[in-house]
């Protein structure tokens, strides 16, 4: 290896200071980065489960986790309704739903309870009931009235207790569940009413009408 010559060791001339020029950002780069950002966001939105702490791979969303889990054997509303029933209703209608000959008609097998549409029994729970009533062909006349529960129970509790009554297989009942959305319009429609329902009034209301 040879030694450098003096000419090579001489420093470079100092007047040629390097300068940084300016150049506009190319638009295609901006577009590409925007596209990348869009794809990344879409991917995150699709696969990150919205950062829900209960979502783990391989599930991409909470709904998929829920679908992979076994469904509860009974409607949660039904279980809730059991508690409401035993608290408020069972003292007159009894825990077995057979009613009491001096206080309340039976709910088990009752044609009122098992009607296709629950709009009449929602009214009964909201405003109570008075006067004679025919249940499954048998006439009942009680001295007491059924209390209105509209100030005590909210829509969900009324829906729950009616679901419990209508779907209680132990009583032989097997009708459709009642949803809170079915209770709300009836509560609104009967908001001004402050007297108990009677059988005549209820039978004028068509089944399925609100």
């Amino acid at each position: 290896m040879r030694n450098p010559t003096p000419a090579e060791l001489r420093p470079l001339p100092e007047d040629s200071e390097p300068q940084a020029g300016t150049a506009p950002t190319p638009m295609w780069l901006v577009g590409l980065l925007g596209l990348l950002f869009y794809v990344a966001t879409m991917s995150l939105d699709k696969q990150a489960g919205r950062f829900n702490p209960r979502v783990y791979t391989p599930y991409a969303s909470f709904e998929k986790v829920e679908a992979a889990n076994p469904k509860p054997a009974t409607d949660p509303l039904f279980e809730k309704g059991r508690g409401v029933y035993l608290t408020y209703c069972a003292s007159c209608h009894q825990a077995d739903g057979l009613g009491s000959p001096i206080q309340a008609p039976p709910l088990a097998g009752s044609d009122w309870v098992l009607a296709e549409h629950p709009n009449r029994i929602i009214r009964i729970v909201l405003n109570g009931m008075a006067g004679p009533i025919t249940v499954s062909g048998k006439s009942y006349t009680f001295n007491n009235v059924m209390l209105p529960w509209k100030d005590t129970l909210n829509d969900e509790q009324i829906a729950a207790v009616l679901t419990y009554i209508r779907m209680n297989k132990a009583w032989g009942n097997q009708a459709s569940p009642v949803r809170p959305e079915q209770v709300a319009p009836i509560r609104k429609a009967t908001a001004g009413r402050d007297t108990n329902w009677t059988q005549e009034e209820l039978l004028k209301i068509a089944l399925g009408a609100e």
Partner: peptide, 18 residues
Amino acid sequence: AGGTTNQVSAPISTNTVS
């Protein structure tokens, strides 16, 4: 006990005003 079957054992129209 929590099925979603909609079985009606007796139609309400049999209710008669006593």
